[in-house]
């Protein structure tokens, strides 16, 4: 541990942890988004269910999932503790907010956006993950698949709204987090850095948009 203790003690080490875990969460989002997008096959959720089934029972995926949850927990704990520590570095606050903006609001609000995402995540896991994993026998059946379950949840406009809001938080969290992670890795390249920034913006828009679209289209009954 000795050599790596800087990851939890020094200012740069701690943000390096945020970046590493953040990027692994981004990788997870790609998979998750791809599976969700399967609903657009318009086959009554068959492909979607098959993919979900695969994710729930493949040993490798389940192992990776443990790593993912570990990373997520570290991202949350480290993120919250960093935010709280950083807040203690200026006891006397400014009387006036910057008249000329010097940074984006969402880059300054990663702690807040992250906390919203955490709350969203609690709701989301309760809604779908728990049923698809632990209640496999009681929750899901041949006739009541995850797809059916999803359709059922999103008939109610309240969760639809909450999911859309969650996705908006995700979008802004990513908009800063994506490129920020590479800055933390120390990447500073005349060609790569601008590419990553563009990619980050595209990712932050497309992925949350796909996520958010599903509750909406299901609620409006636009796909079968």
């Amino acid at each position: 541990m000795g050599v790596l203790s800087f990851l939890f003690s020094s200012s740069i080490g701690r943000k390096l942890v945020m970046a590493v875990t953040g990027v692994s969460l981004i990788a997870f989002l790609v998979v998750h988004c791809a599976i969700n997008a399967c609903v657009y096959f318009m086959d009554g959720g068959a492909t979607f269910n098959a993919a979900a089934e695969f994710m729930a029972h493949n040993l490798f995926i389940r192992l990776a999932e443990v790593g993912l949850i570990g990373g997520l927990l570290i991202h949350i704990v480290q993120g919250l503790s960093l935010t709280l520590d950083n807040m203690k570095k200026r006891n006397n606050k400014y009387g006036a907010a910057p008249k000329r903006s010097n940074s984006t609001w969402y880059s300054r609000s990663m702690g807040l956006l992250g906390t919203i995402l955490l709350l969203f995540l609690v709701m989301h896991l309760k809604d779908f993950w728990i049923v698809s994993r632990f209640d496999a026998q009681g929750g899901l059946t041949e006739t009541k698949t995850l797809y059916h379950f999803m359709v059922e949840v999103f008939t109610n406009p309240v969760p639809v709204t909450l999911y859309v809001l969650g996705c908006i938080s995700l979008a802004y969290h990513l908009l800063h987090g994506f490129q920020s992670a590479f800055q933390t890795f120390g990447l500073n390249h005349p060609i790569l850095t601008p590419m990553i920034k563009t990619l980050g913006v595209a990712f932050s828009i497309i992925v949350p948009l796909v996520f958010a679209s599903i509750p909406v289209v299901l609620h409006l009954d636009l796909i079968k």
């Binding site: 020094s10 200012s11 950083n86 570095k89 200026r90 880059s107 300054r108």
Partner: peptide, 22 residues
């Protein structure tokens, strides 16, 4: 230098970019 910076009570960077803008 980073150790000293941390010991002085400066916060950790969250890449907002306000520093470079100002």
């Amino acid at each position: 230098m980073v150790n000293q910076m941390d010991a002085e009570g400066f916060g950790a960077c969250t890449n907002t970019g306000a520093c470079a803008a100002e």
